[in-house]
Design a protein around this nucleic acid. Structure first.
Lengths: 199, 199
DNA sequence: CCTTAGTCCGCACGATCGTGCGAAGTCATT
DNA sequence: AATGACTTCGCACGATCGTGCGGACTAAGG
């Protein structure tokens, strides 16, 4: 009666654990994510948590996937309501900064938080993070291209270069904001981006 | 005969250990810096290393200090040879990107690598990293101000805003470069910065 | 009803972590 | 020569880590 081990409870437990994992990983790091700690906050036993994933690497990969969904829901989704082109490009940047300030993850942007940790250790985990980053930047690039075609940006603009400029400023702003706990940093970056896009 | 425990050997050992520590910290993180690992690579015993610092936190603080000196030697020093103002501002940015590409630290910029790790854990370590960051950005700001005064940049330029724009792009570029192992990222950012400074 | 698959737990393992203690050795000062 | 400051070591501690095994329980399919 204290426990109800139905079949679909596995999936539900997984999801609950991954929720906590995505939060924790932005604070303790993907490597600092410990089975014991996760068991504590989720009210399960250590071996119970472990059994659900099979290995720590699987847990990390699943956590990245969970974070991806959160990112899509909190950042990309809202931004897609803007019209493709310059508006959507701006919306993506602003929603990104908002989700950092809103502390969707306690440690700011999940992928920025995790990137510097995994970038020096080859393997599936690092590859997954890099892929996620690529998807994000190519979404920016696509909008940049459309903006140029639509004449919303100068025709001599290089969309890849603009994307790089924006994306590096975003992750840089995330890190600086978290380190100094200074919201004016985000404000300043918002202004800079608007200017950069000719607004 | 196998050991020579003279008085100044303490300082020498400290320095040797900190050399390794600064390198290791950019790969394993400041927290992943373990006494045991440090003892291995430095050929000392674990308790020997421990005794030299007294606590892990002291080790971390000393490591940050060591990294600061390396950063001054490898980045700031060379850049100071340029004339204050726009030239030195550009030189600081380029030397920063160079030291990342040159792998002065295996994990790229020490402070970027460490910032996202410590930004969520209050304490002396985080404060030290934040201070270091502030010194770096105020060096940029000073040069920006001089550049504006000298008419090398538009008079309506906000030096703080320009500094933030540059510094976030630099750390963002560092992270993106490491994650994707793509040197063209650094090249593109170099070009962007030159353009931004009107060169 | 019985089997099977799935969920979760208790327990234990070897490894590694930071830390402390006591001893042995070396130098500088008395 | 004796003393004290310092460096380094071996050893051991409790804690926590990822991982594995066996078992208790539940729900579904024959």
């Amino acid at each position: 009666m204290t426990s109800r081990k139905t079949r679909s409870d596995g999936e539900r437990s997984r999801e609950a654990i991954l929720d906590a994992a995505a939060q924790l990983a932005t604070v303790e790091g993907l490597d600092g994510l410990s089975l014991g700690r996760l068991a504590e906050v989720s009210g399960m036993s250590k071996s119970g948590v472990f059994g659900l994933f099979g290995s720590k690497e699987e847990l990390q990969l699943a956590t990245i996937d969970k974070a991806r969904h959160v990112f899509i829901n909190e950042v990309i989704g809202p931004a897609l309501k803007a019209l493709p082109g310059r508006d959507q490009l701006l919306a993506l940047c602003l929603e990104y900064l908002d989700h950092v300030e809103r502390r969707v993850f306690p440690g700011g942007c999940f992928f920025a938080s995790v990137a510097s940790e995994v970038s020096n250790r080859p393997g599936p985990v690092r590859d997954r993070v890099a892929d996620e980053q690529r998807q994000w930047t190519s979404l920016l690039t696509e909008n940049a291209k459309q903006a140029i075609e639509a004449g919303e940006l100068p025709t001599d603009t290089d969309p890849e270069q603009l994307t790089l400029e924006l994306s590096t400023m975003l992750t840089g702003a995330d890190i600086a904001y978290l380190l100094h706990e200074d919201p004016t940093i985000l404000q300043a970056i918002r202004a800079t981006i608007r200017t950069r896009l000719g607004l």
